[in-house]
């Protein structure tokens, strides 16, 4: 097989980016539109709902969500540090930071699980009110993105990291892309958090 696909590890001379980087940004652009539509929905539901809690904090657990925010922000830092470690050719430091990222994202999911189960316990389901419908759907979709990120990062930490030996540039590029996706997940949460919990 002699199919050669150029620019997978070095940037294209004209565009200045690799294929994967352009690809991940295109994917994120479409994600922006997905969450744009969901935020649109949130605004409409909020303005026309029959009853909407005056403050999200009346019904949702703000301290837990704040902790979750800190988790995600920290994981965003660790993943960008893991990329910087590869840039400094330090695989150990990369593994440490990537491992931390995954731990923190698991922490996020655990807290989300606690939040969800306590809501179910009190008999609050998506069908309870428009507020809960929006809350569960939006955080649920965001949670799915977190799960997707964890799977990717686990792969890159484990079997995927073998690529480092043969194609370090390409592997660093992969980590950058995984990082970009993860920052985006963080970014969505940064908006979801005040929109649902605080306002």
């Amino acid at each position: 097989m002699s199919v050669i696909i150029p620019y997978i590890d070095e940037p294209h001379p004209v565009t200045g980016v690799t294929n994967a980087k352009l690809g991940i940004w295109l994917f994120l652009a479409s994600e922006v539109m997905l969450f744009g539509a969901l935020f649109s929905t949130l605004i409409i539901m909020r303005t026309s709902a029959v009853d909407w809690p005056a403050h999200g904090s009346d019904v949702l657990n703000v301290p837990l969500a704040t902790l979750n925010t800190v988790f995600l922000i920290t994981s965003s830092v660790t993943i960008v540090l893991s990329w910087a470690a590869l840039k400094m050719k330090d695989l150990k430091k990369f593994k440490l930071n990537m491992g931390l990222t995954i731990l923190l994202s698991f922490g996020f999911l655990v807290i989300k699980y606690i939040e969800y189960t306590s809501k179910f316990h009190h008999g609050h389901f998506p069908s309870t009110s428009t507020f809960y419908a929006v809350y569960f759907t939006l955080t649920g979709l965001h949670g799915l993105h977190v799960v997707g990120g964890i799977i990717t990062n686990l792969y890159l930490l484990g079997p995927g990291s073998k690529m480092w030996e043969k194609e370090p540039e390409r592997f660093t590029g992969r980590i950058e892309c995984a990082g970009l996706y993860w920052h985006f997940v963080d970014l969505v949460w940064i908006f979801l958090f005040p929109a649902l919990y605080l306002l």
Binding site: G179, L180, P194, L199
Partner: peptide
């Protein structure tokens, strides 16, 4: 509240996008 909350969120989002991304 909405104005302030979204302003802070945009600032945070801007930082993430500008520096981390």
């Amino acid at each position: 509240a909405v104005l302030l909350g979204m302003a802070v969120a945009s600032l945070k989002g801007g930082l993430v996008a500008a520096y981390f991304m």
